[in-house]
C-alpha cells in the first residue's frame, strides 16, 4: 500500500492554477526527487501533503487518511510527516536542544530527561551533538539546516518532506546537508525532496518527478529519467541546471 497518494489534485492561488490535476503515489521507503523550474508547483505540492496549503479539487491520502478532509486531525497527521524548509526556520530564541525538544515535550508530553536524550540521539544522526547548547545564530547555514532536520526527526516521522533545503547554502555546506540525507536514505526513511541537486537525485533517489506548469510532466526511475529525458521540456531544464 502506498504511504502517500495524490489523485487529481488541483491547487489555485486566486485565478492562478499552481497544481493542475496532479496524481502520484509514494510507497514506503521510496525516495522521490521532485525537480522543475521555479514556479512549476514543486514546493506547493509538498506543502499540500502536510496540509499547510488547502487544495481546491482532488484528494490527498496519507497512510489512509484524507489530508484535505476538514474532519481529519491535521495535528496528529503532522506529527507523522516531517517537513524541512529552505530557510531552516529554527526558533531563534531557543537553544538547539530546546528547538528539538519543544514539540516532543508539548505535543507528546515527553519528560525533560527523555526529551534531552532524544535531542542527543537525533543530533548525533546529523553530526552536531556538540552544538546542543548553541543558539541558531551561532551556527552556519549548513549546521542550522542539519538542526532543522534533527528537529523533524525527533518526532519520529514516517515521511520526510524537504523543500529545497540546500538552495540557500554554498556548495561546501550543501555537501554536509546532503550527506545527512544520504544517511537517512540508508535508514530506510521515506522521503520526498524538492531539489536542484541533479547529481544527488541521480545518486540517492529511487524515482524522479519532473514538474512543469503545475503538472507532472515526466516521471520514472532516477537513472533513466535523468540520463534519457523523453520530453523536450525536461531536456531543456536539465541542460539549464547542469551548465
Amino acid at each position: 500500500m502506498s504511504l502517500v497518494e495524490l489523485s487529481h489534485v488541483v491547487k489555485r492561488f486566486g485565478t492562478n492554477t499552481v497544481l493542475d490535476d496532479v496524481s502520484m503515489t509514494v510507497a514506503p521507503g521510496e525516495i522521490i526527487a521532485v525537480i522543475g523550474r521555479s514556479g512549476s508547483g514543486k514546493s506547493t505540492m509538498l506543502r499540500c501533503i502536510n496540509g499547510l496549503e488547502p487544495i481546491q479539487d482532488g484528494r490527498i491520502l496519507f497512510d489512509g487518511a484524507v489530508v484535505n478532509d476538514p474532519q481529519t486531525d491535521l495535528r496528529a497527521l503532522r506529527q507523522r510527516v516531517g517537513i524541512v524548509f529552505q530557510s531552516y526556520n529554527l526558533f531563534p530564541h531557543l537553544s538547539v536542544e530546546k528547538n528539538i525538544t519543544l514539540a516532543p515535550r508539548v505535543v507528546k508530553n515527553m519528560s525533560e530527561s527523555e526529551a534531552r536524550e532524544l535531542a542527543r540521539e537525533v543530533l548525533r544522526k546529523v553530526g552536531l551533538e556538540e552544538k546542543i547548547g548553541a543558539y541558531p545564530d551561532q551556527l552556519s547555514g549548513g549546521q542550522q539546516q542539519r538542526v532543522a532536520i534533527a528537529r523533524s526527526l525527533a518526532m519520529r516521522p514516517q515521511l520526510m518532506l524537504f523543500d529545497e533545503i540546500t538552495s540557500a547554502l554554498d556548495p561546501e555546506l550543501t555537501g554536509e546537508v546532503l550527506k545527512v540525507l544520504e544517511a537517512m536514505a540508508g535508514d530506510g526513511m521515506t522521503m520526498l525532496l524538492v531539489t536542484h541537486e541533479i547529481g544527488f537525485a541521480k545518486r540517492v533517489a529511487s524515482r524522479v518527478v519532473f514538474m512543469h506548469q503545475g503538472r507532472i510532466w515526466e516521471e520514472g526511475t532516477a537513472a533513466e529519467t535523468l540520463s534519457a529525458p523523453r520530453t523536450q521540456e525536461l531536456e531543456t531544464f536539465l541542460s539549464a541546471v547542469l551548465h
Binding site: 526556520n89 508539548v106 523533524s152
Partner: peptide, 12 residues
Amino acid sequence: AQIEAGVSLGLS
C-alpha cells in the same frame, strides 16, 4: 515561516 514550522511539528 516561524508559525508554519511550529504547526508542521504538530503544535496547536
